[in-house]
């Protein structure tokens, strides 16, 4: 199977989300140890969400660099201001 999506669109969505995430003062990477960190950072999940959201739009028929750019911007804003409220971290973690 050949990749039929425009790879550049994905790179634009990912890059814009990453850069705007950093501008919005999200950390680049989660705190260490990363596997236990709940911090929302520019790389994870913002960049991953950006390419996922662009893939959804692509399949719905909205394609192109402009769509990728807007997806990246909205994803970074979403990750910064809404994500934590939508899916909050668990309130009390039981200590082992």
């Amino acid at each position: 199977m050949i990749i039929h999506a425009n790879v550049f669109s994905y790179i634009i969505a990912l890059g814009v989300a990453l850069i705007l995430g950093l501008v919005l003062r999200l950390p680049l990477l989660p705190d260490k140890p990363m596997r236990d960190s709940w911090t929302i950072s520019a790389v994870f999940p913002t960049a991953v969400l950006a390419i996922g959201f662009y893939a959804m739009l692509y399949e719905l028929g909205y394609q192109g660099y402009i769509v990728a750019l807007i997806t990246g911007i909205i994803t970074a804003l979403f990750a910064k201001f809404i994500l934590e409220k939508l899916v909050p971290r668990p309130e009390s973690e039981e200590s082992p």
Binding site: I3, L49, G52, Y54
Partner: peptide
């Protein structure tokens, strides 16, 4: 859905 769009969409859904 197709490769790779399906996998990328699945990653978002799995994250949530």
């Amino acid at each position: 859905i197709g490769t790779p769009e399906g996998g990328l969409i699945a990653a978002v859904l799995v994250y949530f």
